[in-house]
Amino acid sequence: MKAFFNYISEIFRGFYSLLQGMGVTGKYLFTPWKYITQNYPENRDTLKMFDRFRGEVIMPHNENNEHKCTGCGICEINCPNGTIEVITKTIVTEDGKKKRVLDKHIYHLGMCTLCNLCVRACPSDAIVMGQKFEHAVFDRKNLTKVLNKPGSKLEANVKE
């Protein structure tokens, strides 16, 4: 008798769980105007990637063409694949002191795994992850980028 009741209740529980599943998919089915895929090439202009997306390493510059990179090379040490090369130069400041500043921050996008270790290691938050994802180029050379803009300087308030 108990087996019989189990049999019956199994049928009803089965139906209940199937209806629950149909409820979930039905919610999506009857709201077809809500979708999470993107009409990509058409909405290129308005497409906003989500905040945590890692497209490439960039170095933000402010309006006076100043960046925060001190040329310390911690990002270069932290990179597992040797993607980053920091080249520094020595300049003489107005008060006669010699000072080491950034010359070129070279970034090989083709070798980068977008692991974010350089960004986390940077002591002065000079580099961040950018949102651009259309990286296709016709020559491999174009994937090697210099992140600091020509003629850019270190921001005044960055501690060394």
Binding site: Y28, L29, F30, P32, Y35, T37, N39
Partner: peptide, 14 residues
Amino acid sequence: RKVCAAIQQRVGPN
């Protein structure tokens, strides 16, 4: 294909 797309929150053939 359209029903499948709606259930999987896609657009389907367009």
